[in-house]
């Protein structure tokens, strides 16, 4: 098994799935590391002990490239490629921390926060909150604007509920439903700022083709999809 050879640990999220391939040496933040061809820069960075902040990436799903938090600098390349969708190349030199990258990541996270319920920011313990902490941000400068706070919570499923206000539209649930479960019950409906997770043809989870497997709940980084049992006595939004 490749994972044994590479010594991947299951308590670390490498961001993108492991690959089998010829060894490729790269340098991340000055640390030399060798990963199989076809691996992402994000995986190499995690291997090198310099994990890149991320939201839409997780190593149980194929990379997607939507959250734009995992941007890095690569010698000889223009701009700030996303480390999840960029594959390693021999002797690639990657920088995961710089003033510019910090500013960019803060800029992106500020946008997320501008459409995230303020009361849910402090004290949270989701991946979203971990990423906020890693980037060092706890507020935003955008004031009150268009948001998704008033969308209705879908608690039709007996096991989990979906709170669109906390959804960051990373599509991890949609992809988990497709890639892990093969059910294709979830989709992103509408586009642009109106984009939202929908079950089947915008039905409730219970009415939809959802089979309650829980893959989406496990994949959700912001607890928009969350198990009901975690909230004894039912879920109440503060």
């Amino acid at each position: 098994m490749w994972t044994e050879v590479r010594g991947l640990r299951d308590d670390i999220d490498y961001g993108t799935p492991p690959r089998d391939g010829e060894p490729v040496p790269v340098t991340v933040d000055g640390v030399g590391v060798t990963v199989p061809e076809g691996s992402s820069v994000m995986l190499a960075a995690a291997e090198a002990g310099c994990p890149v902040p991320k939201l839409c990436a997780t190593d149980t799903l194929e990379s997607f490239g939507s959250c734009r938090v995992c941007l890095v600098e690569i010698e000889g390349q223009r701009g700030y490629p996303a480390s999840c969708t960029t594959l390693v190349a021999p002797d690639m030199v990657v920088t995961t921390q710089s003033k510019k990258l910090t500013k960019l990541r803060k800029g992106v996270m500020e946008l997320y926060l501008s459409d995230f319920p303020e009361s849910e920011i402090p004290g949270g313990w989701s991946e979203f909150h971990e990423t906020l902490e890693a980037i060092g941000l706890n507020g935003h400068r955008y004031g009150e604007g268009r948001n998704h706070f008033d969308l209705r919570v879908d608690d039709s499923n007996p096991y989990f509920l979906f709170d669109p206000a906390k959804c960051i539209v990373c599509s991890r649930c949609v992809r988990a439903c497709e890639e892990i479960q093969g059910t294709f019950a979830l989709t992103i409906q509408a586009r642009g700022f109106e984009s939202k997770v929908a079950a089947s043809q915008d039905e409730t989870f219970m009415e939809s083709e959802c089979v309650s497997c829980g893959a989406c709940v496990q994949a959700c980084p912001s607890h928009a999809l969350v198990e009901k049992s975690l909230f004894p006595g039912g879920y109440e939004r503060a």
Binding site: R68, G107, L111, G143, G145, R146, V169, R191, F193
Partner: peptide, 25 residues
């Protein structure tokens, strides 16, 4: 940009809407 955004990436999906709001302010 806000009207035409596909909604996949965050800088465009949320950024364009905030851009309009900031300019309005």
């Amino acid at each position: 940009c806000a009207i035409e955004s596909c909604g996949k990436c965050t800088p465009c999906r949320i950024g364009a809407v905030r851009g309009v709001e900031v300019i309005d302010r």
